[in-house]
Design a protein around this nucleic acid. Structure first.
Lengths: 208, 208
DNA sequence: CGTATTTTGTGAATGATTTCACAAGCCTTG
DNA sequence: CAAGGCTTGTGAAATCATTCACAAAATACG
């Protein structure tokens, strides 16, 4: 299979969102031009992205919203639900655990962990904060696929090592730290400080 | 001036972090190879990134940690503090407002706003949640440079229009929505759902 | 002082991604 | 059912980003 760039996957995810919006308004079909307009890209880009996976459109007509929704969901692996755990029950972990949007998209938060005894046992919308000693066992038991790390930077590498040992194959890291994971485990970082510094650069350079 | 890619700026931001770590351990110099190792890139990439802005190293010796720190901070516009406002006092806004790391890096959170009367007046670490009607006036008064949007997706475009009208030139958007901003305003998105879907794709495709 | 060693800075080469441009397909209309 | 008008799918071209490879500069050391 061809190599798919990260940016292409990001755009597919965006197209999926636009398709859902279009479906909500009752649209039956949508053109690459319309998807491009909403995504701030070009129609050729949209068609190229889709062509990496097949031919889903009808010439002259565009794409069937329903069909393309189904295809992109399938490409992105969103036809099955994923089990997610949030590690770290601080303010950020709390915010992420309560984000109802995730459930709607098939990311089921199965557990929240923390090392702080004061936090353990607290209940958040049906979830109880578990002590981190139970992490290793329960991550396996619940077949957790994705771990979201909302822990301090200096704890992050230790935590990621443990979740990987417990069979987790995908990690979304919010700690401002560069983590090492073995081959076969996918890591993505959300680094707010980096984003702010990017904005700072843009401000002093007058770029858009 | 040459065009600087977004990824180059991201890497500079990372190098900055590594330099701070190195400085903390008392290191006087650092090589491109060492920076590359920590950043998961190559030494040639590091040198190329730096060469976009000047020649900061000594052949045979590497870079002076102190000097390169100063240079990168200057490149990224981090020699002055920036005024930041957080819009939306939900859980995410709360988490962001309390993130002490920002202050340390020169991003001063000057105000938090919300539209919900129940939240207004609450005090968080020296900041009082202000009603959104005061936004337009106080953003200007406080010379806010950067707005962090932590509001629901369907409110985001309206909010961004208002902060732009109030003179804000950089926006960090956490809402899962594609926003339109005029030329001269920089927008960055942090979209957790997109990241999760990227992980989902990796899981079903066995990619790293 | 000269040689060995290290590491930078940077053109040239390679690789990846985006844009262009157009033939081919599908629908509508008369 | 033929002509006209859209819109797709995709090679080719162009642009953008990364890696290579090496001369030049700096130090260390005998």
């Amino acid at each position: 299979m061809k190599k798919i760039s990260e940016s292409a996957v990001r755009r597919l995810s965006l197209y999926l969102r636009f398709l859902q919006e279009a479906a909500a308004t009752g649209a039956e079909t949508i053109s690459s031009g319309e998807l491009a307009r909403r995504g701030g890209t070009t129609s050729a880009q949209v068609r190229k992205d889709l062509s990496l996976f097949g031919s889903f459109g009808k010439r002259g007509m565009g794409y069937s919203v329903r069909e393309l929704l189904r295809e992109i969901r399938s490409i992105l692996g969103l036809t099955r639900p994923w089990n997610v755990a949030v590690i770290g029950a601080g303010r950020l972990g709390s915010a992420l655990s309560s984000f109802r949007d995730f459930e709607a998209r098939g990311f089921d938060i199965r557990a929240v962990y923390d090392a702080d005894p004061a936090k353990i046992g607290q209940s958040w919308g049906g979830l109880t904060v578990l002590p981190d000693e139970e992490m290793d066992r329960t991550l396996r038991e619940q077949h957790v696929d994705i771990a979201i790390l909302a822990v301090p930077a200096d704890a992050a590498q230790g935590v990621v090592d443990r979740v990987v040992a417990a069979g987790v194959k995908a990690v979304l890291n919010f700690a401002p730290a560069r983590l090492r994971v073995p081959r076969g485990v996918t890591l993505r970082n959300v680094d707010v400080t980096l984003e702010l510094e990017g904005l700072s650069f843009a401000l002093v350079n007058g770029k858009t």
